[in-house]
Design a protein around this nucleic acid. Structure first.
Lengths: 177, 177
DNA sequence: GTGTAACAGGATAGAGTTATCCTGTTTTGA
DNA sequence: TCAAAACAGGATAACTCTATCCTGTTACAC
């Protein structure tokens, strides 16, 4: 549903947000985000054209966010590389429909709108402040305060959060059927 | 965001639902839905493999829905041709994340889930019962009861719903920002 | 100015999506 | 049995997306 390019772009800007405002080299972002280096370079050029990032050549250069993480939403990034195309007029060009979508296209556009709204509501800064124990792009878990305390007081009993089997999925919300 | 194939498949099954349970020829569906005939044939073969439609060769044959419109949801059709792929494990394969998605992928999957839920909540039958004046695949507007009455009593003053300019969009819900 | 760091951008290629064409197979009914 | 109707399916092509490679250009430090 989301293109590879969107996924890559989001990973890259999250990595930039983590280190903002320090510039990051494309190759370092590529490594951290597991995105092919040469392709990431193209994606970043696209982001620059849409004023999401700044690219600086030469020694000490690299990539930076064009705005502070508080002012960049997921939607800004998504729309920069692979815009969510809302359905505004009848895809069949039926004259009688025009901008009054039929039930089918109304529902399809509603789905697009809900996605757009969700993406617009989250900034990069909010992503980083999320209390989720999995830190974006970082292969470790945050230790909750309680566990951190016990870790400090008795290192031997440090909780070791195990990987869960693929079907356990304790963090996800139950599917509304 | 939605592939052409999904759009085509949805148009086709709506057309089948409109005429259910009467079989429709592929060529007739193609014409009504403005989908390339030969390509629609491939799409329908995909829908048959997923038991969404039945295809019958020979004189009097054609395409029918494999279930009544009340039992087919938009999601059934979408997943048959271009499945909504939920994010269940970390796309970067970070060991520490596993099935506990980070904030970024959690939000992306939430968006996918809301789309999935919306599509699962609407059957083909409900699409056809929608009071929306634009009838799916049909290039005319239903006359609301009031207007129909006035039409019958005084044909000369029959309201003629004009096409609206692209930005007026009176039917769409206001965008929640 | 010279060398190095780092992005810029064109050429190219593989895979997937969308689309077309043509021939084969099945089914029905006269 | 034969002919027509209608789908089946292989071959192929255009286009887009994803990805790689290589050379050029810019910026900084010395």
């Amino acid at each position: 549903m989301f293109s590879q390019t969107v996924e890559y772009a989001l990973r890259a800007v999250v990595q930039l947000a983590i280190h903002a405002p320090k510039p990051q080299k494309t190759s370092d972002i590529a490594e951290a985000t597991k995105v092919p280096n040469a392709y990431l370079s193209k994606v970043l050029q696209g982001l620059r054209e849409k004023n999401i990032v700044c690219l600086q050549r030469g020694v000490g250069g690299g990539v930076t966010l064009a705005k502070p993480p508080e002012e960049l939403t997921i939607l800004d990034v998504v729309n920069a590389v692979d815009p969510i195309q809302r359905i505004t007029t009848c895809p069949l060009d039926l004259k009688a429909h025009g901008v009054r979508l039929c039930a089918l296209h109304r529902r399809m556009d509603d789905a697009l709108q809900s996605m757009e709204t969700a993406f617009r509501s989250t900034t990069l800064a909010e992503l980083l402040q999320d209390p989720n124990p999995s830190v974006p792009l970082c292969d470790r878990n945050q230790q909750p305060i309680m566990q951190l305390t016990s870790l400090l007081s008795s290192p031997a009993s440090a909780p070791n959060i195990p990987d869960l089997p693929p079907n356990a999925n304790p963090e996800s919300r139950p599917d509304v059927v």
